[in-house]
Nucleic acid binder design. Structure first.
Length: 458
RNA sequence: GUGGGUAUAGCUCAGCUGGUAGAGCGCCGCCUUGUGGUGGCGGAUGUCGCGGGUUCGAGUCCCGUUACUCACCCCA
């Protein structure tokens, strides 16, 4: 069989990389649960009509079909879910009678999109979603709560003592604010204006200005929209700046108040690794957001785009009698980790969990080595027995290749353990010996210097 | 879906205007006969993405195809 080539857009990890990923996932789940979010998992497929509910994404949905279909197209068809929000909305409606509202859940799963892959864009990728959904109404303080939970989680994975990932910048805006501002200017097509303003991080301001004018805005209106979009503050000082533009509209007032609450309420969570800012050019392309919107940039990797996005939607779901408003945010775990891992900026120092390799003197001694291993395991020390009784030099190299820090030998003087990094070898009792806590699990290290060079060279 | 680039050893890549396939790293062995790493010496490895064409001769030129990749669209 010829060597298979990788399938573009379907990233896979080597064991050491996967260890980093599971550590991140565990950390996220822990923080979400600390904030009282329950975990759920939804099935991978949804009926096509559910998936297409959100409009124009139909081309990117992977359709599920049996290889030997008698007559295709008879049923409504199934597709792989495109995000975790649509399945969640369906889940809420389906189980509304059994859930308590406001309902808070987190969900960490793969999603699939039939896009053209690129750096940071995949066809199969993992998202970590948190949402809060209410029945009938959902107070805006939950917008702040969502921001705080995700800031806490990001702060944890960026903290040097936990994982030490690069820092994050959570950018918040509010659609009521920008829509109210546009309405106050007398602009008709609020959605189109917002969509064009959203291009500001890719296109220069004068190009966006041209497109705004082409879309029907006066030059005066276009300039005012751009002025609003340049406002970006780490605190609530944006309020005065917006007021200074002199536009009046009730929706604008509402948006300003909501955004100020979120920014002010997050102040206590800000560290040098995790910041928040009111960035009034953030609009988001998706049309179902109705208030708060979030995007997140990874320091040193701005070209990846937003790695964590979401917002408030007044109608996540509706059964005709009750509408369920929600607010949520979704972390692109793959977008965050795949580039860092592939560039070698994030590495684990071990490809196996083993802390100890139990050396094997000869095949006749395998049972004895197994006994030593069992003793180590009884006190929680992951270990493995050497696969063959090679020369000890080879066995040490076997451990070194895998990053296993210790080798346990049976000697005439009893068991001795060698730290192959220092070369130090001491007699131990395998039933009670444990490694220093730092050696118990693979160590994850981050090097930002190489990537920063790459980024600046571009 | 639209437009560009690339495809040679396990990895990163060289290979000029066509002339029988290379380097570095890695891997294996020995120096070192049961305690690795450094050093020295030696060794193995290729359908040159695939198919066709031009030619005495194609990794190299032409056409097609597939995969990968970058940008647009959109988004985590």
């Amino acid at each position: 069989m010829a060597k298979p080539t990788p399938l573009s857009g379907f990233p896979e990890f080597l064991p050491a990389q996967r260890y980093v990923e599971t550590t991140v996932l565990d950390t996220l789940a822990t923080v979400f649960e600390l904030h009282g979010f329950a975990n759920i998992e939804t099935r991978a497929v949804e009926p096509m009509d559910q998936l297409l509910r959100k409009g124009d994404t139909s081309k990117e949905v992977y359709v599920l079909r049996r290889l030997q279909e008698e007559d295709g197209g008879k049923d409504k068809g199934l597709g792989l879910h495109f995000d975790l929000t649509v399945p969640f909305a369906r889940y809420v409606l389906e189980n509304a009678g059994k859930l308590e509202f406001p309902f808070r859940r987190y969900q960490i799963q793969k999603v699939w999109r039939g896009e053209r892959p690129q750096d940071g864009r995949y066809r199969e990728f993992a998202q970590a979603d948190i949402d809060i959904v209410g029945a009938g109404e959902l107070p805006v303080h939950h917008d702040l709560e969502i921001a705080r939970v995700m800031l806490d989680a990001l702060g944890r994975i960026a903290h040097p003592d936990v994982l030490g990932l690069p820092g994050f910048r959570l950018q918040v805006n509010n659609r009521k604010l920008i829509q109210g501002f546009y309405a106050g200017l007398g602009i008709d097509d609020l959605d189109e204006t917002m969509r064009l303003i959203d291009k500001l991080d890719k296109l220069p301001a004068d190009a966006v200005r041209t497109q705004l004018v082409e879309s029907g805005l006066s030059e005066e209106q276009a300039d005012r929209c751009l002025e609003l979009a340049t406002i970006c503050t780490p605190d609530t000082s944006f309020v005065d700046k917006v007021r200074g533009l002199g536009v009046e509209h009730p929706l604008l007032d509402e948006g300003l108040a909501e955004l100020a609450d979120v920014v002010a309420g997050c102040a206590a969570l800000v560290t040098d690794r995790v910041r928040i800012e009111a960035d009034l050019k953030i609009a988001r392309g998706l049309d179902y957001y109705t208030g708060t919107v979030f995007e997140t940039r990874l320091d040193g990797h701005e070209s990846l785009g937003s790695i964590c996005s979401g917002g408030r939607y007044d109608s996540l779901a509706s059964d005709g009698r009750t509408t369920y408003p929600g607010v949520g945010i979704s972390l692109g775990v793959s977008r965050l980790l795949v580039p860092l891992l592939n560039r070698g900026e994030l590495v684990a120092d071990r490809s196996v969990p083993s802390v100890v390799l139990v050396a094997l003197t000869d095949e006749a001694g395998r049972a004895d080595s197994d006994t030593l291993a069992t003793q180590l395991r009884s006190s929680g020390v992951p270990c493995e027995v050497a696969p063959s009784p090679q020369k000890f030099g080879k066995q040490i190299r076997y451990a070194e290749r895998r990053g296993i820090p210790y080798v346990l030998f049976s000697t005439e003087d009893g068991p001795q353990i060698k730290d192959i990094r220092s070369g130090e070898q001491v007699a131990v009792d395998p039933a009670t010996w444990t490694p220093p806590p730092a050696d118990l699990k693979p160590r994850i290290t981050v090097s930002t210097s190489t990537t920063n060079q790459m980024e600046t060279e571009k």
